[in-house]
Design a protein around this nucleic acid. Structure first.
Length: 769
DNA sequence: CTTCTGCGTGTTTTT
DNA sequence: CACGCAGAAG
């Protein structure tokens, strides 16, 4: 990794470790700069050294605005600059955190917003949108909420804030969209809340409508750096453009081949058109890779060359070729998971640390099977994302209460906690309360706190419940000056939340109770980091935290994450699972081409280029989904990998080759059973009945214990020629001949159903019969 | 008002 | 399978 550079003049820690293009990028202090940085080309190093270099030249650290993709990356960058300089640049963050920080200072310029606004996450804004839809009386069946939400997000990412600014509605759908969007916008303002898109959009509007603010930040941020520029959306680009326009010190880095967020509004055009807005841009290309072995890089290049919409770029390295990249095929996802666990175990036996191993997959649900296998093998792991801590019910409950304390207009949180624990306030009461609030022109919480108003909305048990809630609320509101962790403790205690959990009949009670403690300790950690912090600051931090940000690399723990989360990271050993057509590339049914194969390929590329020393690609022939088993073919990406003929950098399982050949043969045939429904077919073992997930598996799994598979041990031959065997897919057969030893032993078997096949012992699930 | 049951449906990916 | 939702009983 470290470059060996012996400079003749005095050693310079900022420039010496850099190669010529890297150095050029660092030295280009003034004027627009576009750094096309291939994977593993030392981009982060260039950015940190550039920041350090600017500071050394006399630029004040607070004049530098650096935007990264995750908070984790931001933290790392700050630390690295600190190491080089002894100074931490204060403005290194994600776009969203940066926006939140500025809005926290100025959003009261856009009434009715105040600086105590709440940030709504996906879930909150989804719920809010749902009630907006109900209010407007639009038939729910007309447009799925999901797509409505998506479209609204797209609108915002295009920079449109007011519903009136939408093009006049022509069809029913856009009329509804316009109407609901308008209502949603209003509802957010009433609640003093912003969603993720608003953070960016409102900041842009603030810069566009408040000349003094624009001026101020233009003067402050004399140098702007944007990392992962290929994944910025229009609004993000405009924010940086507004700030950098006069002084033109805008440095962007990115790799078009790693653009994987177009579904979130990321716009490659930002990168491709950069030179239009900044014609005097200097372009630096970083193509030397320091991260991976030659073989891994070869694989990466082979993958990405199949994309048509790209600028030619070939990564190269001086690193050795290393081990070949391995492709493995398994009969089922369960087996895939088990074999991955076994592989991890073996690697660890060889001395690889668990934390040096990462397992990637396309969708979160693929982690389950793998997790199960790792647990069975007693291998410690951490999983990034999936069931997020801050999305758990018990955590959300408490956070909602906290939010309501900070922002009384946060009606979504109010809804969540008003009857928690149950105190007899139901839909009807709530409805009346909302009406009373609307009439009085106040937020529902304020109506509840007003004795006259609440008496109008409820009586009897419900009224008593409201009163109980209000006295609790007021007691806690009086304690807002306390540290957040203390406030949370009080909250848990006074709500009687533990007792409520225990009597709620929810499952995983110990976990939930432990989560309460973890939340309190997260707050305590926040206080330690931010002694000046407030409840509002804590809330902001947790709502802008990404899954990876919460991930702490723990020694000896294998890491599991989605390919998206893997962006920007690197691991000595990488395993990418589920390389199956339909899964990676992911293909959604009933949606034509909404998924972009090129973006899927880039995603695969991102995964491949995370690997430093070893890369394993696995796929399974069948997978459980929705409770029944579906068969799956190898990913077309694997086919592409193999298309260049025999390659020394790739070691491919015979079963994969067979599967690909089968797929090819099938393509032209009219085999109804296999061909009817596209890439995903119900699994039919031996070509017969549909197999429902049955209990018979348990019995057979035991027989595949690892001790049956001597590794490179010539001992006795478990499958001598002439013996009869059973195979999960092919059924019964007779071993004709065998060669090789241990797990790599190859068998030629004559199956009754499909004829002769060659299989690799270590990966074929064979049973002697 | 709360809780239970049965039915239908199927979420990429994440700030 | 597993979750959310609608509808009915208590």
């Amino acid at each position: 990794m470290m470059l060996n550079s012996k400079s003749t003049s005095a050693p310079d820690p900022l420039l010496d470790p850099l190669n010529p293009p890297q150095r050029q990028a660092v030295l280009h202090a003034e004027g627009p700069l576009l750094i096309l940085a291939g994977a593993g080309s030392g981009k982060t190093r260039v950015i940190t050294h550039r920041i350090a270099y600017l500071v050394r030249r006399g630029v004040r650290p607070e004049s530098i605005l650096a935007i990264t993709f995750t908070n984790k990356a931001a933290g790392e960058m700050r630390r690295r600059v600190e190491k080089l300089l002894g100074v931490e640049p204060p403005w290194v963050s994600t776009f969203h955190s940066f926006a939140a920080r500025l809005l926290r200072r100025h959003l009261d310029r856009v009434p009715p917003y105040t600086r105590d606004f709440t940030i709504y996450d996906e879930d909150d804004s989804f719920n809010l949108l749902k009630s907006c839809l109900e209010e407007t009386g639009v038939d729910r069946g007309l447009i799925p909420l999901r797509s409505l939400r998506e479209e609204i997000s797209q609108i915002k990412n295009r920079g449109i804030l007011e519903a009136d600014a939408l093009p006049p509605a022509s069809d029913l759908r856009s009329r509804i969209l316009r109407q609901v969007y308008g209502r949603y916008r209003e509802a957010l303002e009433e609640r003093n809340a912003v969603d993720f898109d608003d953070l960016l959009l409102l900041l842009l509007k603030l810069l566009e409508t408040q000349p003094d603010l624009l001026e101020r930040y233009r003067r402050q941020f004399r140098y702007v750096l944007i990392d992962e520029f290929q994944d910025t959306n229009r609004v993000q680009y405009l924010i940086s453009h507004r700030i950098a326009e006069p002084h033109r010190n805008l440095c962007v880095t990115g790799d078009p081949d790693q653009s994987i967020y177009s579904w979130r509004g990321a716009d490659l055009q930002n990168m491709l058109n950069f030179e239009k807005d900044y014609p005097e841009t200097a372009v630096v290309k970083l193509e030397q890779n320091y991260r991976s072995t030659g073989n891994i890089l070869e694989t990466a290049n082979q993958v990405i060359q199949f994309n048509r919409q790209r600028r030619e770029k070939v990564l190269w390295t001086e690193n050795g070729a290393g081990e070949p990249v391995e492709v493995h095929c398994f009969s089922s996802a369960e087996e895939e998971a088990r074999e991955i666990a076994e592989l991890v175990e073996e690697l660890e036996r060889e001395g690889v640390r668990g934390s040096d191993i990462a397992i990637f997959y396309r969708t979160n649900n693929l982690s389950r099977e793998i997790e199960r296998a790792l647990v069975a093998f007693n291998i410690p792991y951490t999983i990034v994302g999936a069931i997020e801590f801050y999305e758990r019910k018990e955590v959300k409950d408490l956070v909602a209460f906290l939010r309501l304390l900070v922002n009384r207009r946060d009606t979504e949180s109010f809804r969540r906690v008003i009857n928690l624990p149950p105190r007899g306030i139901g839909k009807a009461t709530l409805e009346k309360l909302f009406q009373a609030a609307a009439q009085a022109g106040v937020a529902p919480l304020m109506a509840a706190l007003d004795p006259a108003l609440r008496a109008r909305a409820a009586r009897g048990r419900a009224l008593a419940g409201l009163e109980a809630f209000c006295s609790l609320y007021q007691a806690l509101a009086g304690r807002l000056d306390q540290p957040v962790s203390r406030l949370l403790e009080l909250l848990i205690e006074q709500l009687g939340y533990e007792a409520y959990l225990l009597s709620s009949g929810l499952d995983h009670l110990e976990d939930r109770l432990a989560n309460l403690a973890e939340l309190v300790s997260a707050a305590a950690q926040y206080e330690e980091r931010q002694p000046e912090g407030s409840a509002g600051g804590f809330l902001e931090e947790i709502s802008l935290l990404a899954a990876v940000d919460r991930w702490e690399e723990k020694r000896d723990r294998v890491t599991l994450m989605t390919l998206h989360s893997a962006k920007g990271l690197e691991f000595p050993v990488v395993i990418i699972a589920g390389l199956e057509e339909g899964t990676l590339p992911l293909i959604r049914k009933n949606t034509e081409d909404r998924t972009d194969r090129e973006e899927e390929r880039r995603l695969f590329y991102v995964g491949v280029t995370r690997a430093q020393r070893q890369l394993y690609l696995t796929h399974a022939r069948s997978r459980l989904q929705y409770g029944s088993r579906f068969s799956s073919s190898p990913s077309s990406f694997l086919k592409e990998l193999l298309s260049s003929g025999p390659a020394c950098w790739l070691r491919v399982d015979d079963l994969t080759r067979e599967a690909l050949a089968e797929e090819e043969a099938r393509a032209g045939s009219w085999d109804l059973e296999w061909d009817a429904s596209g890439p995903r077919r119900r699994y039919s073992p031996g070509g017969g009945r549909t197999e429902k997930d049955g209990p018979e598996k348990d019995g057979s799994e035991k027989e595949w214990a690892e001790e049956d598979w001597p590794d490179e041990d010539p001992g006795e031959d478990p499958f001598p020629p002439g013996c009869r065997v059973y195979h999960d897919t092919y059924g019964e057969g007779i071993v004709l001949q065998a060669s090789g030893l241990g797990r790599r032993r190859r068998l030629t078997i004559d199956f009754e159903s499909v004829g002769e096949k060659r299989l690799v012992l270590g990966f074929a699930r064979l049973r002697r019969i």
